[in-house]
């Protein structure tokens, strides 16, 4: 390998997948959409008489074989689209009390395999420049004020995104970072894969 890094980069070629135009090349089995029916053991009550609730699920496999993973990464809910951001969506990530899994997967969507910048998705380090605040982890007292202050500092219009089961429902760790009604977008998974995050953020833009 040459010490000229620019040439090194060129020689490596393109590793970015065509996703979401084409299906994911290497989706994980867990987490993904579950198929199955009936009651099953669940430590977080994600399965009850009404079936499976992706928002609560921590994808721990206790419910197998009654439920099994399909590999389908579309485990998210968009309550209200924001087409005003269809060209670009600037996201301010806020770690309320995560285990680090959601943080790393969010970082991964900008790595070469996924390259979310090509899809008009960007991270900003200031809430003043953000279109969306993306909340990760459970509620913690110490991060309550930073979360509120960051939200208030954002210009309108703005959207609130929950990333992962902890932010949505508290998972198996604690209480959700915000009440579920405050989220415009809920991305399920523990942690959600980069495929799920990208697809959800694009759907949030109404594209």
């Amino acid at each position: 390998m040459s010490n000229l890094w620019f040439l090194n980069g060129i020689r490596k070629g393109i590793v970015t997948e065509k996703f979401p135009k084409t299906p994911p090349e290497d989706p994980p089995a867990w987490p993904s959409m579950l198929s199955g029916a009936g009651d099953a053991r669940c430590p977080v009550d994600a399965i009850d008489g009404n079936g499976w609730n992706m928002d609560k699920c921590i994808f721990c496999r206790r419910c197998t074989p009654a439920y099994s993973p399909t590999g389908n990464q579309d485990i998210f809910t968009v309550e209200s689209e924001a087409p005003i951001f269809h060209r670009s969506l600037y996201i301010y990530p806020l770690d309320s009390g995560s285990c680090g899994g959601c943080n790393v997967e969010l970082m991964n969507i900008f790595a070469p395999h996924y390259d979310a910048n090509r899809l008009g998705l960007f991270i900003t380090n200031s809430p003043r420049h953000a279109d969306a605040i993306l909340v990760m982890g459970v509620f913690t007292e110490g991060m309550e004020d930073p979360l509120r202050l960051a939200y208030e500092a954002m210009p309108d219009p703005k959207i609130v995104i929950a990333l992962g089961s902890c932010a949505i429902s508290g998972g198996i760790i604690g209480d959700p970072a915000l009440d579920i009604s405050k989220y415009n977008v809920r991305i399920a998974g523990c942690p959600p894969s980069p495929y799920t995050i990208i697809k959800a953020l694009i759907a949030a833009k109404g594209v």
Binding site: K12, V15, D26, P28, A29, W30, P31, F59, C60, R61, P69, G101, E105, N108, A111, P112, H113, C190, P191, S193
Partner: peptide, 21 residues
Amino acid sequence: ILREEATRIVSRATGHRYFFS
């Protein structure tokens, strides 16, 4: 790129990208 490849090794081996369950 290498880190993602390592993560995919874990995912194919365990069904989860971070060894859960």
